[in-house]
Write a protein that binds this DNA or RNA. Sequence first.
DNA 1: AATTGAATCAACCGCACGGAC
DNA 2: GGTCCGTGCGGTTGATTCAAT
Length: 333
Amino acid sequence: MGRAPCCDKANVKKGPWSPEEDSKLKEYIEKYGTGGNWIALPQKAGLKRCGKSCRLRWLNYLRPNIKHGEFSDEEDRIIFSLFATIGSRWSIIAAQLPGRTDNDIKNYWNTKLKKKLMGMIPPSQRKLMIPPFSSSTPNNYQITPSSQLSSLPSLYRDCTASFYSPPSSNNRQPIPGLEFSSSLPSSTTLLTDSSSLFQAQEGGFLCPIQYDSPVKDINISNNMLVFGSSERSDCSYGREIGVKQEEMDFQGYIPNGFEGNNNVQRVGSSYSNSSSCDNANHLSGCFGGNDNSVLDYDLEDVKRLISSNSSSNSLLFTDVSNKTEDQRALYYF
DNA sequence: AATTGAATCAACCGCACGGAC
DNA sequence: GGTCCGTGCGGTTGATTCAAT
């Protein structure tokens, strides 16, 4: 048996709202409020609409102080920054932009900002990739040498410098709303975001991913490099600790289709445990490349990149664990 | 002027979450 | 603890508008 419908579908109007409906809804809510019950509201207000539809109409168009029209550059910047940090959590992003609704921002992102973003990254730099975490994604990625990274546009740097590394497990304090909800044990808490997925899909740029495990060694393959992971090279650790397949796919634990592939190598603590993580204070990330013929990085570049990450700031990763909460906040907002 | 494809965005849908019982 | 139900969220759809030919 399926879920009971929220309203009588046969007797509710769908589609665009008429001015009359708008004024009915607006007048009712201004007079009586929502009463904390959207389901019952349309009947009380004399509307043949679903409660959810009323709620959406009110929140997105009728409520006071809704801002319509062009987004400012500042708003763009905030959206970029937050998207890079928390992904497509539009309601959270909307909360930072007074007058804007999640729906507005979502549409704006999907129709304009995404294209704008891609337009800001020169095609030559779009080679800087993370692996396509999907077996259906074309395997034509390659890594850009770190020697070329300085030419990345500032937006790119902004988008990649938004991760927080907790200094120890005792005072591990993931930034509210940013921790990835998963079944990972605390020793392998991963702070990442759905922008990773977006970036993978779009072919945009390197994606920083943070594990709280120290980078200890470097293994590199012809086809893929992942560093900072507490995963074993055969990807068995994720399974052992009960990480869901989709999470592993998403986070790079086991890029779908690469399981057991010798060309997937892990960089970092292969057998991470809680004690090693206690002192962990590293940012990490992953690169991907799946075409032997086109890889154009060199190992030294990567080594330099990683060693600079593990000390303090670098172009690609910024460790903010030694900053105040305010400073951290500034990083995000 | 007509046609067609792309872009936009309002609205819908289904799911997850959390509170009430 | 289990179930029900309302709410909120994010993904997707589809009608409309715009631009190119």
